[in-house]
Structure formats: C-alpha cells, structure tokens
C-alpha cells in the first residue's frame, strides 16, 4: 500500500492504496465518487471518463499513482454549486440518454471537448464523443446536447 494525495474536484484527498488500483476504483471505492461508471474496466467503453488536468481520459486505464499531482475532475465536479452545470443541463434538456449508464462519461467527454474547443462543429463533436459508447444509441441527442452545451457554456462565461 502506498499513500497518495489526489486532487479531485478541487479538493485534496489522501488515500492509502495498492499501486495496481485504477484511478476509477479509487474514485468509486475510496472516495465515494460513483459518477464515473465502471462499464468494461478495460478502456473499451468510455463510461469512466474523467478529466485529468482538463483533458478526458479513461479512469480505468489510469493507475491511481499516475494521477497524483494532477487536477482530476469527475462529473460531480461539473456542478455549479448545487445546480447542474451547463453540459449537464444540456443533456437533460435534449434528453441525451436512455438508460443513463454512459451519461456521466459522455458529459465529461463533452466538457473536455468544450474546454479545448468551445465552439465545435458537428464533426468535431462526433469525434469528441467517439470514445464513449452508448448502447441505447442516444447519439443524435448527445450530439445536439453537446451543441447546446457549447451555447450554454458561452452564455455562462467559460469553464464550469
């Protein structure tokens, strides 16, 4: 076991973990942040997407110690106080999910896309969420929600 200090959603969190633990398991089991979902735990579905220093990654393909010293953002960190953040609002507004299992990963992927590219084209949106599978096939609404999220984010002034 090794002690790690992780910075998650703006808070410093100390944990004692085996280095083989994935960031996903530590977020969910040690820190109680269950927004990032475990779909495949092998980098093939995207439901565990988190931001590391603002960039989307799969938490299941990241060893927890590799995340030390980085700024980690999960879907919980995208709230605007107690209210939903702009990407979350846009997903609700456009009904961009059915079962909802992939949704937090989709939202974080869109947040990462918009931080790098605040006004993406439809093609850029499609590429931006191409690492997130939706078995319900809600893609058309996810693309619309991502476009709407760009508008909402611009209206609320940048990074959520």
């Amino acid at each position: 076991m090794i002690p790690l200090t992780l910075r998650v959603n703006g808070r410093e969190r100390r944990v004692l973990v085996e280095p083989r633990q994935s960031l996903l398991r530590v977020l969910r089991d040690e820190l109680g942040l269950t927004g990032a979902k475990e779909g495949c735990h092998r980098g093939e579905c995207g439901s565990c997407t988190v931001l590391m220093d603002g960039v989307p990654l799969y938490a299941c393909m990241t060893l927890a110690p590799e995340a030390e010293g980085r700024e980690i953002t999960t879907v919980e960190g995208l709230l605007d106080g107690e209210a939903l953040g702009p990407v979350q609002d846009a997903f609700a507004e456009h009904d961009a999910f059915q079962c909802g299992f992939c949704t937090s990963g989709q939202i974080v992927a869109v947040e990462g896309l918009l931080r790098a590219n605040p006004q993406p084209s439809l093609e850029e949106i499609r590429t931006g969420v191409s690492g997130n599978l939706c078995r319900c096939g809600a893609y058309p609404n996810i693309f619309r929600a991502a476009g709407r999220a760009a508008e909402l984010r611009a209206g609320r002034g940048g990074d959520s």
Binding site: G46, L57, Y58, A109, G112, S130, G131
Partner: peptide, 9 residues
C-alpha cells in the same frame, strides 16, 4: 488511433 481519451494518454 483508438479514441480521443486513449490518444490523450
């Protein structure tokens, strides 16, 4: 290569 997340990593 792969997906945006995997290209980031």
């Amino acid at each position: 290569v792969a997906s945006p997340q995997l290209r980031n990593q």
